[in-house]
Design a protein around this nucleic acid. Sequence first.
DNA 1: CAAGGATTGTTATAGAGTAACATACTTGGT
DNA 2: ACCAAGTATGTTACTCTATAACAATCCTTG
Lengths: 168, 168
Amino acid sequence: MEKTPLAYSHHNHSHCIKDAMVSARHLCESRGVRLTALREQVLELIWQNHKPLGAYTLMEMLASASTRRVAPPTVYRALDFLLEQGLVHRINGLNAFIGCPSPEKKHQSHFLICRLCDTAVELDNNKLTQDIQSSAKDAGFVVETHSLEVMGVCPACTGKAHKEGRAS
Amino acid sequence: MEKTPLAYSHHNHSHCIKDAMVSARHLCESRGVRLTALREQVLELIWQNHKPLGAYTLMEMLASASTRRVAPPTVYRALDFLLEQGLVHRINGLNAFIGCPSPEKKHQSHFLICRLCDTAVELDNNKLTQDIQSSAKDAGFVVETHSLEVMGVCPACTGKAHKEGRAS
DNA sequence: CAAGGATTGTTATAGAGTAACATACTTGGT
DNA sequence: ACCAAGTATGTTACTCTATAACAATCCTTG
């Protein structure tokens, strides 16, 4: 327990959002792809907090933000774009999506997902990626992508549980 | 590339099935849980090959095997039981289920999933589990379970691709 | 054999994702 | 400025995955 990820502590989350939006705009510009109003809006909604959001939740958020009704393809197409550009990741175990904190560099996603508060933190652990690749290679397998999802309890929730334990 | 998993080579698959069924029966007996006819049938269907099967595919197989119609809850309940007992695993990335080759020992599931032939092989790599746990621990996270799904091309399909490459 | 729990059947519905086609918006060439 | 082609979005309908709720049936075990 050395460098606790930001998501686990109180922090000015508007910075997270702003940073994500700024780098998304830069990234899309430099790649010559269009970060349209809709895509930007979806990305911003996803970044509202550090918890993965389902496509249908996003759909409702979009709908309530704009009076008009929003159908599934609208949000799925935006998500497809954001996934392609590496701006968001999909968490298979939850059928949900979360913003990527480092979209500029291609990487495999490793997540710590808290059972209690739903917060999902992306690990940036290159050694793990290499361990996984070498494990697969030992079996003669050619790796293209991989996904690692770790379920458990985050440090913030562990702390709360301790306090409650003492109080009761 | 040392010990190629069995699933990648030609093998007498009836042995795989029989082994799985025998150990499932032993396991359930020793645990005092009931491996009913339905559950046994679902497990046997799952073991038809080394490819993950979706719940609805299993449903159709059940239906066509028994004239009567089979509804989703029937197969999902059997799958829930088999999952609880560790007799099958769920592959989140595919919404599919596959038999566990070593149900007697509790473990985290690591899969190599071939994009070309769909074969999914379970790795038995304790070191990887420990690496993942220590990575999570560094972030102050208490691990309960994890799932690792590696996508790519299996050695059998890599071989075929090479042959085709030469031929054309 | 009766009572209680576990298992399965049945109907309906929720949740996640996509196909197909219509409409609108950009953009580059003339 | 205008048109054509490509890109993006709207709309409708549908498929696939999974579960809720309740009824009927099947074990046990006293």
